[in-house]
Amino acid sequence: MLHALKELFESLLAPAGSQSPQEREHALQLATAVLLTEVMRVDGSSDAAQQAAIMAALRERFALPDDALAQLVQQARQAAQTANDYYHFTSSMNEQFTQAQKIEVVEAMWRVAYADAHLDANEISLIGKIANLLYVTQGEYIGAKMRAKEAAQLG
């Protein structure tokens, strides 16, 4: 278990050029999953609707089978518990994601936050912090939030 977690962190911290395409893709998948699970974790509750929103966002973004998604989310929870900051997750995204893909991540984070029909101040703060680390502009941030809110049918 610890060996697998160590390998995950090494894959996240390794320079992008030294990784195989599969390792880079997995590192991006893990980084995205960590950020989504952090939205669920930050308000102190683990709601079934939020878990479903995480799975739906990851399935949509990465087209992984259910067993691979479940494993990815489990790895993300472990990685999030031992992470000191979000920079090493967002830095790989900044290197390899387009601006549109980074906005999609922020929108997915908002969808997770809205999934339980209760927006917590810690969720808002976390998503704002991640959006800044991803260099998502204020306008892009607000647009992502409004699209997620509309998708949640909250007005």
Results as ranks from 00 to 15, higher is better:
P15T: 07
Q19S: 12
E23D: 10
H26W: 12
Q29L: 11
A31I: 06
T32M: 09
T32S: 15
A33L: 04
A33V: 07
V34M: 01
L35I: 04
T37N: 01
M40V: 12
R41F: 02
R41Q: 08
D47T: 06
D47L: 08
A49N: 06
A52E: 06
I54H: 00
I54S: 00
M55H: 13
E60K: 01
E60A: 01
L64Q: 05
D66C: 05
A68S: 11
L69Q: 14
Q71V: 11
Q71F: 03
Q78I: 14
A79I: 01
A80T: 01
Q81I: 09
T82V: 10
A83E: 02
N84S: 13
D85G: 12
Y86V: 08
Y87N: 07
H88N: 02
T90K: 07
T90N: 09
S92T: 02
S92D: 04
S92W: 04
N94M: 12
T98S: 14
A100H: 02
Q101W: 07
K102A: 05
I103N: 02
E107W: 00
E107C: 00
W110Y: 09
Y114I: 10
A115L: 10
H118Q: 05
H118W: 05
L119T: 15
D120V: 03
I127C: 09
I130T: 07
I130D: 06
N132M: 04
L134F: 11
T137E: 07
E140S: 14
Y141A: 12
I142D: 14
K145F: 14
M146N: 12
K149H: 13
K149N: 13
E150L: 15
E150W: 12
A151C: 07
A152C: 12
A152S: 14
L154K: 13
G155M: 11
